[in-house]
């Protein structure tokens, strides 16, 4: 499996991801109408980051730039000091980074277990027993074993989000991006999910970046970046 190696660190050696002077505007927007303007953020492993801002401030757009889903931006985004634009973004997405969405984005015709295994297959993870690993991952995010063969559409919102997190852990990525992961969940479940992210960052040394409106999420995060609407 091809892994992106650490290159010589130009800035802070702890940074896994750096955003340098990033500007972004939509295709159909006016020439000077930027959604993101002069964005400079650094992200380290082992920490939970919250990016908050009002609606339309470009939170989700920033997340799609970091995840490589959108790459027509000005400035540079560096993953381990390597320009993201120059990388194989499919490989980047199925090896180094995982996105957890508010709407879970699981494949509805598959079971919880199959969704996790498919992610492992795409990432070409070499595991002796993928089913066993999937069950372990499910258990690690608080999902009982008996839900493994249930279609994801028959799971509750919290359970689906747990499956999405378990899927994101299936190939052991260094960065976990979450777009409003608790937006559809009740308070209690929100806390449970947040606890999982915090554990992943603090215990498993992941870099967790959460885009959120929730002050609860911001309070529990290590670092909060505030996005303001560009003028």
């Amino acid at each position: 499996m091809k892994k992106i190696k650490n290159e010589e660190n130009n800035t802070n050696s702890k940074n896994i991801l750096s955003i340098k002077n990033v500007n972004y505007r939509y295709k159909d927007a006016a020439r000077d109408e930027y959604v993101l303007k002069d964005i400079n953020y650094d992200f380290e492993k082992g920490k939970v980051y919250a990016i908050r801002g009002r609606s339309g401030s470009g939170k989700t757009t920033l997340l799609s730039l970091i995840s490589g889903l959108e790459n027509k931006y000005e400035g540079s985004i560096l993953y381990k000091n390597k320009e993201l634009k120059k990388m194989d973004l499919d490989l980047y997405r199925n090896t180094n980074i995982e996105i957890v969405f508010q709407s879970y984005n699981l494949l509805p015709h598959l079971t919880a277990e199959e969704n996790i295994i498919l992610s492992m297959d795409i990432s070409k993870v070499k595991v002796r027993d993928k089913n066993e690993k999937a069950v372990k991952l499910m258990e690690s995010v608080g999902l009982p074993k008996n839900l493994r063969s249930r279609r994801v559409l028959k799971l509750s919102g919290g359970e689906q989000q747990r499956v999405a997190i378990a899927r994101s852990l299936s190939y052991n990525p260094e960065i976990i991006l979450a777009d409003e992961p608790t937006g559809n969940l009740d308070k209690e479940t929100e806390n449970e999910i947040l606890d999982i992210f915090i554990r992943l960052a603090h215990e498993e040394n992941k870099c967790v970046i959460i885009v959120t409106h929730s002050s609860n999420v911001c309070n529990k995060s290590d670092i909060v970046y505030e996005l303001k609407k560009s003028k």
Partner: peptide
């Protein structure tokens, strides 16, 4: 939607 999810989790267009 299925295509979007597959592409998001890193499956290549060709695949």
């Amino acid at each position: 939607y299925e295509i979007g999810v597959l592409r998001t989790i890193g499956m290549k267009k060709s695949k």
